[in-house]
């Protein structure tokens, strides 16, 4: 059956997310009848099965979400949310040492922004991933980490600095950018989770 994936198009690497989901749907043999679309207004959210919140500047995206009246439609959204980097910060329940914006509180987790430092400290690294024999090549850009994960949150990957990939129901929260590398395994897992 086809699925509709919306990518929140407020700011950040939106086109990379659109492309990655189109590739993943083709790999899963589910591209027929499916669509991947940029979401620019609040009333387009409910019609999706999955919603991606891309990487970008979390403070900027958070302000846009509120200015465009998207907070309630996202909170009421019944599908799965795929959130990377800035998206993960938005999805979390709390942000350490930062009162600049109110996160959505969908993911029962606390995050720490820029946990590895500034851009100079951004890195690429192979990451052991729960349930996989091959590592995942992960791209961390001014990335956050998860410092606390609630009991309903499954930990998919961690580094010495903290947790970097989690799942909660059909939601997925990632501190790194799978849309920037070629590996589509996490996208495929997310799509699989939407069926059930």
């Amino acid at each position: 059956m086809g699925v509709r994936i919306g990518v929140l198009d407020l700011q950040g690497d939106v086109s990379e997310h659109l492309l990655a989901f189109r590739e993943a749907l083709a790999l899963a043999g589910r591209d027929r009848g499916s669509s991947v679309v940029p979401i620019r207004s609040a009333d387009e959210i409910a019609g999706c099965d999955g919603l991606a919140i891309p990487g970008g500047e979390s403070t900027t995206i958070a302000r846009m979400v509120d200015r465009k009246g998207m907070r309630d439609p996202i909170l009421e959204f019944s599908g799965g949310i795929f959130a990377t980097c800035a998206g993960l910060i938005l999805l979390s329940a709390a942000v350490e040492d930062d009162r600049r914006f109110l996160p959505l509180g969908i993911l029962d987790a606390t995050v720490c922004r820029n946990a590895f430092g500034r851009q100079r400290e951004s890195f690429e690294q192979d990451l052991p991933l729960e349930g996989e024999t091959e590592p995942f090549h992960a791209v961390f850009i001014r990335a956050p980490v998860i410092t606390r994960a609630g009991t309903g949150v499954r930990i998919l990957a961690r580094l010495p600095q903290g947790i970097v990939a989690v799942a909660q129901g059909s939601h997925m929260g990632l501190a790194f950018h799978p849309e920037l590398s070629r590996d589509r395994r996490l996208h495929l897992r997310f799509l699989k989770g939407l069926q059930g």
Binding site: G12, D13, G56, E57, A86, E121, S122, F123, L180
Partner: peptide, 18 residues
Amino acid sequence: RFGTELLKRGFASMQKGG
């Protein structure tokens, strides 16, 4: 790995629409 082309261009991608 630090300072790769992917990390540099990736950083720029995060600025898009801004």
